[in-house]
């Protein structure tokens, strides 16, 4: 009940959220400054990140040297999936990606130091080990996305602009929720990092390719299970004007905000349960 109290309940709660966000921001700035204490290392890892995430796209380009379409999707269309998947994962990774280190903190017992401060633990742990170098993925995927948008000629309408903006926002929230929810599992399991990674990094790689190349059950899993399809596949069907391989009702293409809300709620609940479990069992 402890967390419910501090979040819900009038003006004081709103003030708590503002305070939490401010503290997150300050922790993030401290980590950036700490990283810049070693500038050479900072720029090298940043370049490394750029190159590593670029390799995925090289693979796709190589495939298109041998074929004109992948699952019926053209190179610019696949590049659109690649770009949106990378940008949304990259943004989520920047904001909350370092939470996969929570397992280490649980084992070391350093979660305790977070719990004795008057700021919600989530804000402190999300900001912990913030790594600006992760912006590499966003930049590289953003470049591919820009190229695809230039090649695709989407004949933009206000609705399309809105769907595109919501794709980036909701996609980030969905991936972020998977990060937070996955991290919460560290409170129960000894090593949850790999499970979490398979959904985030693994999921993002999956979303770089068209849904038509996968078995229908896998695609169905991404709609009704871990709802990664709402990150880019479903909105892309609308934006690129394509048919749904699952034949779902067309409103699914616009349901990403709903999916994002559900994901965020589920992640929040999981986090709270995890924290409560930690506090009754200890490390």
């Amino acid at each position: 009940m402890a967390e419910t109290r501090s979040f819900v309940g009038g003006g004081a709660a709103r003030w708590d959220v503002v305070h939490a966000v401010r503290c997150y921001g300050h922790i993030v700035r401290m980590w950036i400054r700490a990283a810049l204490a070693y500038p050479a290392s900072f720029w090298m890892t940043m370049a490394g990140n750029l190159a590593a995430s670029g390799m995925d796209f090289v693979v796709i380009v190589v495939m298109f040297l041998h074929t004109h379409a992948l699952g019926g999707w053209s190179l610019p269309q696949v590049a659109f999936l690649y770009g949106t998947s990378g940008v949304t994962l990259g943004l989520a990774d920047i904001f909350v990606g370092s939470m996969d280190q929570l397992g280490v903190r649980v084992r070391e017992g350093s979660v305790d130091t977070v719990l004795v401060r008057p700021v919600p633990a989530l804000a402190q742990i999300a900001g912990d080990r913030f790594a600006l170098r992760r912006i590499g993925r966003v930049l590289q995927s953003g470049a591919v996305l820009t190229w695809s948008l230039l090649r695709l000629d989407l004949s933009w309408t206000p609705l399309k602009v809105l769907v595109f903006a919501s794709l980036v926002l909701c996609g980030t929230v969905i991936f972020g929720s998977v990060f937070v929810g996955g991290s919460a599992c560290h409170f129960f399991m000894a090593d949850a990092a790999e499970v979490q990674n398979s959904f985030t990094y693994g999921g993002a790689t999956m979303l770089q390719y068209p849904p038509t190349i996968y078995a229908r059950d896998i695609v169905r899993g991404t709609v009704f299970g871990v709802p990664l399809a709402f990150v880019n596949w479903l909105p892309a069907l609308y934006l690129l004007g394509r048919d749904d391989p699952l034949g779902l009702p067309s409103w699914f293409r616009f349901a990403s905000p709903l999916a994002a809300l559900l994901c965020a709620t589920a992640a929040g609940l999981l986090w709270r349960t995890g924290l409560r479990s930690y506090r009754s069992t200890g490390s």
Partner: peptide, 20 residues
């Protein structure tokens, strides 16, 4: 436990072998 965040404001903690 229930008032952790509020009480945190009124207490100081030093864990000897773990720096904050």
């Amino acid at each position: 436990v229930r008032d952790r965040v509020r009480l945190a404001q009124r207490m100081g903690v030093v864990f000897g072998q773990r720096t904050t």
